[in-house]
Computed example of a mutant assay.
Amino acid sequence: MKLATIRLGGTTTAVRVEGGTAIETGFADVGALLREGGLEAAAAADGARHELAGADLAPVVPGPGKIVCVGLNYRNHILEMGRELPEFPTLFAKYPEALIGPRDEIRLPPESDAVDWEGELAVVIGSRVRRASAEEARAAIAGYSVLNDVTMRDYQYRTAQWFQGKTWENSTPLGPVLVTPDELPADAQLVTSLDGEELQRTPVDDLVFGAVELVRYISTIVTLQPGDVIATGTPGGVGHARKPPRYLAPGQTLTTRVDGIGELVNAVAEEKVAGAA
């Protein structure tokens, strides 16, 4: 099953996606659906129908209670950054204000001139879980989506803590849909491209800590709730690690794809700030 959140005028609605059709489920967004109805309600829904091709897609979960991100979790990225494989996951957080839709603009803030791409597989939680066993963690995963952890590298490396480079407003596309675990191919590839040039390509099973391990670990620290999002980390090929480094620029188009889920296609533009030079 595939789920999405679409914008309708000044509101949003959660839809079940069947082919090119988006079927309303009666919930305000996918996060609300998971909290209030669950996947069973989504499967049974038979509301108003819309053409998916013309729909205005919001972040698949517009307002998650938590966005927990994992750094240095692909073997090839860890090696390109000159680090050793970690014993435990490296965690940081984003706020919901960072999220944008899968077709929205990525806005480059005037304060940063080192904005980088990081294509990622996202895990969306479907049920409340704390101190999960492997079986409980697997059952708590509602599905998967695509995220790009767009990062302001100059701010990230101002201190030893990464948070300040990772949660800028209007920076992080999430979508286009949530797919239930049965729809994610075992050999799915994550691919990031800039203006058609392929920059990242890695099997999602190259993760050091997989989805179930991450749910177990994070739920030991804090209760995970329906609609929470875990960004599982990026593979090798980021701009900051290139010689010379490469960063996003206005007028470019960033595409992030995971097999079985779909793709984010985001134009890159300058953020217009009143009074900025």
Rank of each mutant, 00 (worst) to 15 (best):
L190Q: 08
R158M: 11
I218L: 12
P173T: 14
G175V: 05
T202C: 14
V146N: 00
R128F: 00
A122Q: 06
A140S: 14
P185H: 05
A160Y: 09
Q161I: 14
N148Y: 05
E136K: 00
D149K: 03
V191K: 07
R128E: 14
P203Q: 10
Q189M: 13
R128L: 04
K243Y: 01
P176I: 07
V215M: 09
T234E: 10
V238N: 09
R138M: 01
T167R: 07
V124A: 03
E120V: 06
D205T: 14
Q189L: 13
D104N: 15
Q164R: 15
E198G: 11
D187G: 09
P176F: 09
T172R: 01
T192P: 10
P110D: 07
I218A: 09
V123L: 02
E183C: 03
W162H: 12
R242C: 07
P235K: 05
K166D: 12
R130I: 01
G233Q: 05
G227T: 06
I125A: 02
T159S: 13
S219K: 06
I106T: 11
A137T: 07
G101V: 09
D113I: 04
P226L: 09
G126A: 05
A134P: 11
L184N: 06
Y217M: 04
T151G: 08
V204G: 06
G101S: 10
V177A: 02
L108P: 11
D104S: 15
G239Y: 00
W117A: 05
M152D: 12
I230Y: 00
Q164A: 11
S112N: 10
L147D: 02
A140C: 06
A114P: 05
E105D: 15
T167V: 09
F209G: 14
E136D: 07
L207A: 10
G237K: 04
W117M: 04
E169R: 15
V191W: 01
V222H: 10
G126R: 05
G236L: 01
A122D: 04
V146E: 02
D205F: 12
W162F: 12
T172A: 10
I230D: 09
